[in-house]
Design a protein around this nucleic acid. Structure first.
Lengths: 145, 145
DNA sequence: ATGAAATGGGATAATCAGGTCCCAATTAAG
DNA sequence: CTTAATTGGGACCTGATTATCCCATTTCAT
């Protein structure tokens, strides 16, 4: 699996917010039910994304989470970095520690191209771009919806 | 992490065989010590690769493992499929089950390009190609060697 | 004020990949 | 024939990820 489950959930939740209600606070429970994500786990993930400045939260009645910035300045890469860290963009495909420093693994150059491609796609795709697509009925985030 | 630890170990072991001694049986213990891979774990991985027709083994004294075919007809993709299965080449980046069947996830098209790139690199790279590189002193498979 | 609705955050449980152990089966060499 | 060296394969242990639970804190509505 390329991304951890927590990261997948975080991306889907952020995309849901961008596509449906970017301006107001939405309870985590609402998001979890819309996307079929376990509520307590999503609450934990939301905490992480708030700490990384991707979401903003409000406690209490009428509280919830929303995007911390406009959807067109939040990239998928930011969310991946927040949830999974930079390993996906840095680490050796054969798992050699220190690959790239002196002598690299024999697949280093070929894989650098793949990694760059992954990074580019995630860095160039904003929540706004995918949110529009979702709002237009193209694509889905839940298993049914 | 793109590949499981077991898959990384399997690739490194196969590359080591291709680069050093493709014709004769090499004890798993020798390979594990050369690459710094835990012996019992590599033994189990070797079992899997034998069952998938990538390695051949011989029991008893003077036994060990070797490539089941010429190094130029074994691709990295084969080894990844044997160890991790086809998920890397098929599954949705957002973890949606059934993505691609009817309505896909909003990132589907962009990610299809990434997946194809990964598959192409692994399918076009043979053990022979990387083995030559290693034999020429370019690249390494162990943390020191 | 009071109560209901929500997140914050630490502790805990369940699941799975990663790694170890043991011994039977097999083979080469002396 | 016996012994040492090796893989085969199942059972087991361990640690990280995934998921849950509990309760304190905050906030809005009445």
């Amino acid at each position: 699996m390329i991304l951890s489950k927590a990261c997948e959930y975080g991306l889907r939740a952020a995309l849901h917010l961008a596509a449906t209600d970017p301006a107001s606070y939405v309870p985590i429970r609402t998001v979890s039910e819309a996307l079929g994500i376990p509520y307590p786990y999503l609450a934990k993930i939301a905490q992480t994304l708030v700490q990384h400045g991707i979401l903003t939260s409000s406690r209490g009645a009428a509280g919830g989470i929303r995007l911390a910035r406009a959807a067109d300045v939040i990239t998928l890469k930011e969310i991946v970095l927040a949830m999974d860290g930079p390993a996906l963009f840095r680490s050796c495909v054969l798992g050699l520690p220190g690959c790239g420093d002196e002598r690299s693994c024999p697949l280093h150059d070929e894989w650098a191209v793949v990694r760059a491609r992954i990074e580019t796609v995630l860095a160039q795709t904003t929540l706004a771009a995918l949110g529009e697509r979702l709002a237009a009925g193209e694509g889905r985030l839940g298993t049914t919806v």
